[in-house]
Nucleic acid binder design. Structure first.
Lengths: 338, 338
DNA sequence: TTGAAAGCGCTAACAT
DNA sequence: ATGTTAGCGCTTTCAA
């Protein structure tokens, strides 16, 4: 079991110094073509593989970006990760993934871990639990780029990539109204996350703009999941003023709503249902779920672009906020008129 | 902008040497409690954060495991990753993710990249394209644990975690037969991946065991996707000997089959359909899709366990092959008798 | 129980 | 165009 080849081995092989080898390998211009070629050949011959760790330690750059998401199991986040990687391709940067599982404690640990791993920057989408964001201050203090996407926080003055969530909420509501629904309820999370608040605001604004009353009892604050959707739907259906449509703050919750409505034999889509995120299953359930597409691929691409720009040292640039336009995906679950 | 705190700063603060600080921090026993406590206090006071890079360079261990999967967008792989992380929790190991996007070229690059990042080991599930696995030899040569899961390869003599795919194929077929289907077709990938071959073998064995003929024209070799499912279904329905049930090698393909059958007004579930993987959508489509659950969470947990065992240097242990038992998820798409 | 010092593999300033 | 050399921050052997 021989030791791994280092640039010293290559240097010895060619009777040059390590600096020459290092320079040849890293594309330094002032190296003769002959030397460069010899170095590459020797490297190949000796089966050389660079130790990025050593390089990173010396240069202070790891070319690794930490990405924190609540969970890869949500198709939305999986898509974002996918397109972040896509956008980083050929830039030399790679990502290291950390899942918070919607827990602040885990998120705090994630930031610490990534910082210790000397990542060159962090991209994060906050957990539902996260209210205090002090744990991210250290990233900023270390002058490492921090980019927040989707679930952002106003306390952090950093570049963000978000959906226009107000518009998203407005669109969903407006769509239902246009379809002929008049008594529209809303199931959302109790957590004070900006994006969910914004969607709710959009909902309220749309109602108001259409001279429809805002009925606070029609706004259910709970969790976001199939179970919570079932719970919310049940509560709404039993309420005195039974709604004729339900907006759920995400597709999982909307799915729960649909399941409950089926369970209790409420006619669909006579009661309209719409969600957010265009999850993997949304097109295929029955009735197929109308939803607001949040364009995760675009979000991921923008995150990558933002990061790359920041690293190119555009110096005094002001903080960037990319806002993605939501789009309506009309499907059967909101087709009142057939 | 002050520099980051290092163990030297702590040493200076306390008038001890770096070795003492290093030992105190790393839990070395022969350190007086007083010193240890003083070190921890100073560390806290100076806001010290260890540089794992330096530690890794010196010690030769990064505590990072590279994980290569075709894509996180498949719920199956997302679940595996999730449970690998879960299983690694508290072990000190982190994972760095690499997506091959079903491309060998990308997979080769992934191995190279991860090795350069000095990961302590690699867990991988092969791309559909992968036939030659020479690129993984280097991992073995470096004496780093390599664990293959789900999409494995016999050329690589390494620990594996797989489903009993033969049984899975057998179960799916047997289930259809039990439900009363008699003329069962099969849509699978043209790629020579063991798990898909095994499923097909299970299918054939089940037919034979039930004295049903194997009709080679009923086995469609194409891709695995919604589109391919549609294509396969179309071809099968038009064939002379029209099948009364279709097995698709994964749920996406099964979904395509169902969509095509609906499109051409074939009655469901009079034509039975079953898939593999129990994807996120499978329970919610109409008819809900019967499928074989591959227990990704169990697979991920086993991968983590296998890795941790390997690192604990159970010395002459023979290569481990964990085989997970598939289970049948009966839903509407195979309910011939109501 | 603690200190001194070498060195992990690489980069980069300073020489030549 | 190439060489010399000093670290990056940490671990670890040897010595005290």
């Amino acid at each position: 079991m021989k030791k791994k080849t280092t640039i010293y081995d290559i240097a010895k092989e060619l009777n040059v110094t390590v600096s020459t080898v290092s320079r040849a390998l890293s594309g330094f211009p002032a190296i003769s073509d002959a030397t460069r070629q010899a170095v590459f050949e020797a490297a190949k011959k000796l089966n050389y593989s660079p130790n990025k760790l050593a390089s990173a330690l010396k240069s202070g750059r790891t070319y690794i970006i930490g990405v924190i998401v609540p969970s890869v199991q949500a198709h939305f986040f999986a898509s974002i990760i996918h397109s972040i990687e896509e956008g980083l391709k050929n830039s030399g940067y790679r990502i290291i993934l950390y899942q918070s599982n919607e827990s602040v404690a885990s998120e705090i640990n994630g930031v610490k871990t990534l910082l210790e791993a000397q990542v060159d920057g962090i991209m994060a989408s906050l957990s539902l639990e996260t209210e205090d964001v002090a744990h991210f201050e250290e990233v900023i203090k270390q002058h490492k780029p921090l980019i927040l996407f989707d679930r952002v926080h106003e306390k952090l003055k950093v570049p963000t990539v978000t959906l226009d969530d107000f518009k998203a909420g407005y669109m969903a509501t407006q769509h239902l109204i246009k379809q002929g629904f008049k008594n529209i309820a809303y199931v959302t999370t109790v957590h004070q996350i900006r994006i969910f608040n914004d969607r709710l605001k959009g909902y309220k604004a749309a109602l108001t703009d259409n001279n429809l009353p805002i009925n606070e009892e029609h706004i259910i604050f709970g969790g976001l999941s199939i179970k919570d959707g079932k719970f919310g739907a049940d509560k709404l259906i039993r309420s005195e003023n039974k709604p004729d449509a339900i907006i759920a703050a995400d597709d999982f919750t909307a799915l729960g709503v649909i399941q409950k409505l089926k369970e209790i034999d409420e006619p669909l889509p006579k009661i309209g249902v719409i969600g957010f995120a265009n999850e993997a299953f949304s097109a295929y359930i029955t009735p197929s779920l109308s939803t607001i597409d949040q364009h995760p691929n675009q979000m991921g691409a923008e995150c990558a672009k933002l990061f790359l720009n920041t690293m190119q040292n555009k110096p005094n640039q002001k903080v960037n906020h990319v806002v993605i336009d939501p789009s309506l995906v009309e499907r059967e679950s909101t087709k009142l008129k057939m």
